Amino acid sequence: MTSNDIQIRLAENLKRFRKERKLTQFQLAEKAGISDETIKNIELCKTWTSEKTLAQITEVLDIDVAVLFLPVQSSFELDSKVTAQIKSAIGENIMKYVESVLEEVYAK
């Protein structure tokens, strides 16, 4: 995966979440305290953004920053090998989390 792929995911996900909340680029920018040009440039893959800006955006959208970098459905449909790797990684992380929760519960 290249940095361009990650930037495309960020752009697609930002646009999708913004539209789900029925916000224009200007409205999102205004609520986040940033310029609408910043939102436009992120969605057009013209620029990377700072952690601070991402935090401001995700606060307004009420999402965790990580979801902006998750693969979109079209990514799953294009490459079944990548899909299998992603599903495996997600499964492993879920299992580790469940194991840690169980250890914590039984330690009490």
Rank of each mutant, 00 (worst) to 15 (best):
I57Q: 05
E51A: 14
I6Q: 11
I34S: 02
D5S: 06
K52I: 11
F76I: 02
I6Y: 08
I94D: 09
I39E: 03
T24G: 10
E12H: 03
E92S: 09
M1W: 05
G91Y: 14
K87Y: 13
R21N: 13
K81W: 03
E20S: 12
L54T: 07
V98N: 05
K22L: 05
I63G: 02
A89D: 15
F69Q: 01
T24S: 15
S75Q: 05
D79G: 04
S100R: 07
E51F: 13
R9T: 00
N93T: 15
A29S: 10
I8E: 02
D64Q: 09
L70E: 13
E37I: 11
N41G: 01
L23Q: 05
E103H: 11
Q73I: 00
D79Q: 06
V65R: 11
L102P: 09
E104G: 08
S88L: 03
V72W: 00
E77F: 03
Q73K: 02
K96V: 01
L28V: 09
A29I: 05
E43D: 12
K19W: 09
A66Y: 11
I34Q: 00
R16Y: 12
Q85C: 08
L54I: 05
S100L: 02
T53S: 15
E99I: 08
E12T: 06
L78Y: 12
S80R: 14
Q56W: 04
E92I: 09
K87L: 09
R21W: 06
K96N: 06
S74C: 08
K22M: 02
G33A: 07
V101W: 13
N41V: 00
N93K: 15
F17L: 07
A11R: 01
L10Y: 04
F69L: 00
K108L: 00
L102W: 12
R18H: 10
L44F: 11
F26P: 00
E103K: 15
A29Q: 09
I94F: 14
T24L: 14
N93H: 15
P71W: 12
T38A: 09
K22G: 03
E43F: 14
L70I: 10
Y106E: 03
N41R: 06
Q7I: 02
S50G: 11
S74E: 07
E77P: 00
L78M: 13
K81A: 05
V60I: 06
E37P: 00
C45H: 02
E12R: 02
S74W: 05
W48D: 13
R9K: 12
T47H: 08
L23Y: 15
I86A: 09
V67I: 15
D64V: 05
V101N: 14
L14E: 01
A29T: 07
F69V: 05
L61P: 11
D36R: 15
Q7V: 00
S75M: 02
F69C: 02
R16K: 03
N93V: 10
A84S: 06
D79W: 14
T83V: 05
T2H: 04
Y106Q: 07
G33K: 11
D64Y: 10
Y97E: 07
E104V: 00
R21S: 10
L102R: 15
K46M: 06
V72R: 01
P71L: 08
Q27A: 11
